[in-house]
Amino acid sequence: MRVLYILWLRQLKRYFRSKSRIVGSIGQPLLFLLALGYGLGSIYKRAGEGNYLHFLVPGIMIQTALFAAMFFGAMIIFDRQFGFLKETLVAPVSRLKIMLGGAIGGATTASIQGALVLVISFVLGYRPTRWAMIPVALLIMLVLSIAIACFSSGIGSFVEDMQGFQAINQFLVFPLYFLSGALYPLDNVPSWLRIVTEFNPISYAVDAMRWSLIGEAKFGIGKDLIALAITLIISMVFGALRFRRIEA
């Protein structure tokens, strides 16, 4: 427990000490909320779908948490380049614990950033219909973040440099995000694309968030939670196996 705690704490300290990360984690979602929220809001309404901000905020929360959690994999690459990774790799602690401590820390900072989005959107006039479910929404975001942080540590373990890591981000994570229904409904897409969205773990996280905050779910909360659990388990196994084999 002490080991998990100290590694978790390191991620939090490093986040709160980095002004550029804090500014980025507020600035980017704010930009998305303003640009998309105001830009597409009227079109959305005209299409008869109702309040776009309602629909958008859970998606932007997931977006923020998703990419912030992916950043944990980049931390592993930095730690390797700066040499600190060796210190943890030779310690008399199982590599699983080393990875989990950091990943849960990275997921915590990712969820804090997602929660900040919710606060920002309050200021912009967003009002969830189910206030009491906000803790559930945050918990869902944390679980997704842990899964993504584990996944990204797996990637960070075998990609040699940041370029390789960014390539994975761009060719895998971005497409998954755009096909998750976070920004726009995916009801009228061709059937092959629908299959992609139905195998996309991010879709279920977005759906579960909408269920918590505005009481609307496409797949249903039961299906969402099962999908999230499966995602968490697969990511953890993937991350743990890759991280075990890391050489420095």
């Binding site: 300290k13 040499g83 060796k86 310690a91 602690v93």
Partner: peptide, 30 residues
């Protein structure tokens, strides 16, 4: 890994943490 300690040739401290924090983290890991 439970048998040894090591001082590396190359740098291996976290430069974004304080000396005390680096020492504390090591103490917990070991």
């Amino acid at each position: 890994r439970r048998s040894f300690g090591i001082v590396f040739q190359d740098p291996s401290v976290d430069t974004e943490m304080t000396a005390y924090e680096n020492m504390q983290l090591h103490a917990v890991l070991y």
